[in-house]
């Protein structure tokens, strides 16, 4: 079996390290996947601000492509995850809209498989099984797991974990031997969708999230969203700067993979020096 892999636009650009580290982890664990051929943009945060139908039809094209491969669709990007899940939900619950969209696409959609996040896939593989593959314990690394918005909300269709008190990311991260700190801003919004149009505001949101992590003893932040990663990495202005890792970067490191292969050299806040100081890279 396996999965149809949907990288999304960011992973082909500013979040290329998330693409690299995701593929590296999947390969290492022997999880089968194929990139969805000729995938298109899911519309991200713009389509639904411009047209309600487009917000469903853009992701729907990718859903139907995956269905033709008869594989569940999986994406590392939390924003794509949200758009794909939302469209899947809409196509199944709104027959009128579904008809309109599917006619233009000239395909059917049964919705056999729910679109998944790469975290779902890793979780299905099992935290224990992931832990067994760890060769380099990330001991003494104190991590703040940051979920952000779109993996958890709206709970109608984004069902990765409990929307107010999630815990799955911590479980995955702790399999590496790192310790997840308890902190309050795990599900706060960092304002990434306004990063270009309202930068000042977003700087204050990102800085307060990072400061909160610092105050609770974290040495780094870990996330599963390219918008959150880029935003926190670029917009934090606090006195202590924290590197912001993708979950797959830390997992890959714990699997003993080369930091370069994981893209760790392409962050804004230096992502290597903390690891070097701990003799992890």
């Amino acid at each position: 079996m396996g999965y149809a892999y949907y990288p999304g636009c960011s992973l082909h650009g500013t979040a290329k390290e998330y693409d690299m580290s995701s593929r590296a982890c999947l390969d290492f664990l022997g999880i089968q996947y194929r990139e969805l051929p000729d995938w298109s943009c899911c519309g991200a945060s713009s389509a639904h601000s411009v047209d309600h139908t487009l917000a469903v039809s853009l992701p729907a094209r990718n859903l139907t492509l995956a269905e033709q491969m008869n594989l569940p669709l999986m994406t590392p990007c939390a924003a794509c995850y949200s758009r794909l899940r939302g469209a899947h939900h809409a196509l199944r619950s709104d027959p009128g809209l579904a008809k309109k969209v599917l006619t233009v696409l000239g395909s059917e959609y049964k919705g056999r498989y729910e679109p998944l996040s790469i975290l779902d896939v890793l979780y299905q593989y099992g935290p224990e099984a992931v832990g067994e593959k760890v060769t380099k314990k990330l001991k003494e690394l104190r991590v703040a797991c940051y979920y952000g918005c779109l993996l958890l909300r709206p709970p109608d269709y984004a069902k990765f974990d409990d929307p107010e008190n999630p815990g799955k990311m911590e479980r995955l991260v702790e399999t590496t031997g790192a310790s997840a700190v308890d902190w309050p801003h795990r599900t706060e919004c960092c304002g990434a969708s306004l990063s270009l149009s309202d930068t000042k505001l977003v700087v204050s949101l990102a800085t307060s999230i990072v400061d909160m992590a610092v105050r609770h003893g974290a040495e780094c932040i870990v996330t599963a969203c390219p918008m959150c990663q880029a935003n926190l990495d670029m917009r934090q202005r606090g006195r202590t700067k924290l590197p912001v890792y993708y979950v797959t970067e830390l997992l890959g490191l714990a699997f003993g993979l080369e930091p370069k292969r994981l893209g760790l050299t392409t962050h804004m806040v230096n992502a290597i020096s903390l690891l070097r100081a701990k003799q992890l890279a």
Binding site: C9, S10, T14, G43, S46, S49, V50
Partner: peptide, 17 residues
């Protein structure tokens, strides 16, 4: 921002950041 974003999807099918 939204207009530019959508115009690019329309042109290429994907977003080039």
């Amino acid at each position: 921002f939204h207009k530019v974003f959508l115009s690019l999807i329309k042109r290429y099918g994907r977003i080039n950041e």
